[in-house]
């Protein structure tokens, strides 16, 4: 029986250190409390003749000192835990994006190259991976203990999470948010492969058309092209170069066009209207399913590369 959890992501090393630090603090405090309880229980039992001497009268000083000591230690732990969390919040720009669509009770994984898998995630080692996740029904949670990451997967919005696997192997994937009957069956494998094996896996796992290419077809089928490719009677912003850039909104604020923004623009266009455009884009909520949405987003993503390179 193992009592330690193998670590397979370089991003998790700091978490492990933090856990160790917390353990040390806890053991020290626990040791102190238990030790004092034991010593007092023996030394000051009611029939022990030990001289109790004068009572410590200045309770105020004790109170202030242990309150301050606790505050300082706690504040240190807070800073420590938060720094790591904040640092791990923003994925690096070069991360490999993989889309995850959860539903009762399976994980559907979509790779940019068009490869699809269910309850398994194949990824290359030593590469930052960013997951863009959503759910078709209830809240699920993507949890890979060996990477020290987990994040709730919500219906109706994108959640992202990233990590950098650094050990080849197969690791548990758990759903850790209770999601109904087969919650404990909503598990799978995360397979970390060498770059070579990964390339091999990509070619043998089919895919055919890339996600973006499939998205391009959908872009025409859902009638987006009619407005967004210009030439028509309506005025709509060009989506070329949109991904990742700042967008001025009609309410005066600015948004960064990430996956979540693009998703919201399609599903709830009225919630963020691009400055100097009319809010005429129809909502596609309940029209486009999560799977197609992933393709459209990937397509719009690919338009950014078109502009830059």
């Amino acid at each position: 029986m193992r009592l330690t959890l193998p670590l397979a992501a370089s991003t998790g090393a700091q978490t492990d250190l933090l856990l160790l630090g917390l353990l040390a603090v806890s053991l020290a405090v626990l040791g102190l409390v238990f030790w004092l309880m034991l010593v007092y229980a023996i030394r000051y039992r009611h029939n022990s003749p030990v001289d109790r001497g004068a009572l410590a009268e200045k309770s105020f000083r004790f109170e202030i000192s242990w309150t301050v000591a606790t505050l300082v230690i706690f504040f240190g732990l807070f800073i420590w835990g938060s720094t790591i969390y904040v640092r791990l919040y923003q994925p690096p720009a070069n991360a490999l994006k993989v889309y995850v669509v959860a539903k009762q009770w399976m994980w559907k994984i979509e790779h940019a190259g068009g490869q699809r898998e269910i309850n398994a995630l194949h990824i290359p080692v030593d590469t930052p991976i960013e997951l863009i996740m959503t759910s078709e029904d209830v809240i699920h949670d993507f949890f890979v203990p060996a990477f020290r990451v987990k994040r709730d997967v919500l219906p109706g919005q994108y959640e992202t999470m990233w990590f950098r696997p650094d050990r080849i192997g197969t690791y548990h994937l758990f759903c850790s948010q209770f999601c109904g009957t087969a919650h404990s069956n909503m598990i799978g494998d995360v397979v970390v492969m060498s770059a070579q094996d990964y390339a091999g896996w990509l070619t043998t796992s089919g895919g055919g058309k890339t996600l973006a290419a499939q998205g391009k077809g959908l872009f025409i089928r859902y009638g987006c092209a009619g407005c967004h490719l210009g030439g028509g009677t309506v005025r709509a912003p060009s989506l070329v170069g949109l991904y990742g850039s700042p967008v001025p909104l009609s309410d005066g604020s600015t948004a960064i066009a990430d996956d979540r923004y693009i998703r919201d623009s399609i599903m709830q266009p009225k919630s963020q209207v691009v400055a100097s455009y009319e809010p005429i884009m129809p909502s596609f909520a309940n029209v486009i399913g999560e799977d197609d949405l992933v393709r459209l987003v990937a397509y719009i993503h690919s338009l950014a590369a078109e502009k830059h390179g």
């Binding site: 998790g12 700091q14 978490t15 933090l18 856990l19 917390l22 603090v25 806890s26 706690f74 732990l77 807070f78 420590w80 835990g81 938060s82 790591i84 969390y85 791990l88 949670d141 949890f143 203990p145 020290r148 990451v149 987990k150 994040r151 850790s176 948010q177």
Partner: peptide, 14 residues
């Protein structure tokens, strides 16, 4: 205290 520390909670939550 473990669960209040953000990064640790990411691992231990649920």
């Amino acid at each position: 205290l473990f669960l209040a520390a953000l990064a640790a909670d990411v691992e231990l939550h649920d």
